[in-house]
């Protein structure tokens, strides 16, 4: 399992990458592996204000549907429209292919998220 060091992770297997005010959100390698072949990604609407832990979309595979919970609060300012035509991008490279970008201007709240190391340890408890 691949877990880049520069990201923050949630227990729901999302990652956040912070660039200035922007928070890029995606799903982890563990998540894409658990879901299997992803067939559809329902993206959030632009300008939607999201509280911590609120649903910002749904990811569907052939045999599963998973709600995407926002690991940080903020306003949706970009969505990755490539995923509409090619949801398999999330299987191919879950860390390069972000799902949405939130404006985190008021974000002191990356707390509760895990480092790569902590997330790896967390995933191991799930697999055992």
């Amino acid at each position: 399992m691949h877990t880049p060091e520069n990201l923050f992770y949630s227990k729901e297997h999302e990652w956040v990458r912070v660039e200035g005010n922007k928070g890029y959100i995606g799903i982890s390698d563990f998540a894409q592996h658990q879901l299997g072949d992803i067939v559809f990604v329902e993206l959030p609407e632009l300008d939607l204000e999201i509280n911590l832990g609120e649903s910002i979309g749904v990811i569907e595979s052939v045999k599963a549907a998973a709600t995407l919970f926002s690991p940080v609060p903020g306003t949706i300012i970009e969505v990755n429209e490539d995923l509409e035509e090619a949801p398999e991008l999330l299987n191919q490279d879950p860390y390069h292919n972000w799902i949405a970008v939130l404006d985190l201007s008021d974000s002191s709240r990356l707390e509760g998220l895990m480092s790569a190391e902590a997330y790896n340890a967390y995933c191991q408890t799930l697999e055992s």
Binding site: D37, V39, F40, E60, V62, P87, E88
Partner: peptide
């Protein structure tokens, strides 16, 4: 059958 393409 290719269920993945069917759903994508």
């Amino acid at each position: 059958v290719d269920e993945v393409t069917a759903a994508r």
